[in-house]
Amino acid sequence: MSTNVPDTDTENHADTDTENHADTDAQPAPQQRRLAKKRERREHAPQSETNGDTDQQTVELKVFRYDPEVEGKREPRFDDFHVPFTKGMTVLDALIYARDTFDSSLTFRHSCRQAICGSDALFINGAQRLGCQTQLSDLEWPVRIEPLPHQEVVKDLVVDMEHFYEQMDAVDPYFKDEDVPDGLEEQRQDRENREKIKMSTRCIWCGACMSSCNIAAGGNYLGPAAINKAYRFVMDEREDGDVTQERLETIEAEEGVWRCQTQFSCTDVCPKDIPLTEHIQELKREAVKNNLKFW
């Protein structure tokens, strides 16, 4: 479906669904109520309600192009694409249209198209956003699309994520405790603790936060995503105290939490609305408390 030129009806449907998926924690009842409301709106609202005559609108994309293997593209440049706008069209939809219709060499990562896989974080109109989550109607036109800043560009909109993945690996982003208590078959977590780490578990490794961070840009700072991942496990009461201690030592290291300058860039751009700065600050306080005990 993604590789075809989208026909208006299914495309609208897919995109309104996407909005709902951003809120997966919702109970079934409100979810159904919302869907019902949406259906109603679709039936009653005239197609042209958003921007006058939508059929004839085209959106201009200015897309960053670079390819070290092609003679004419070694010098980075911007290409313009004029894509017919349909209601509910996202930046990713427009890119897919441009690739399928105009230039099959236009390269970008995408997979699930519903803000879960974290493949299509892009620099859109000066901010890090997910292409699949960003409605063209919410943006100023023409829309400028660049690869994520602070990472090396491999080709067009594709950046080298190796450094980001290394940072994520540095905090051991997996549950480390194997012990199951008292003959239970699973490690149970109480509701309060689950609530505490809820937001931090939503990370999709898209790298938007890392790209927005001025400090992570320059050096080896662990970065918001990795620290948030550490937070998710440090705050998880099911892990053993020794493991937690080990995790704290990682994030307290020189390139850990202390590098954070609370610029809030990461929190501003996170497509999953994770309060990254808040988590980093909490870990700083946790680290200070942890060390004061040794005095």
Partner: peptide
């Protein structure tokens, strides 16, 4: 083999 570093 190559990638584009947009620098500081």
């Amino acid at each position: 083999s190559q990638s584009y570093d947009r620098g500081h």
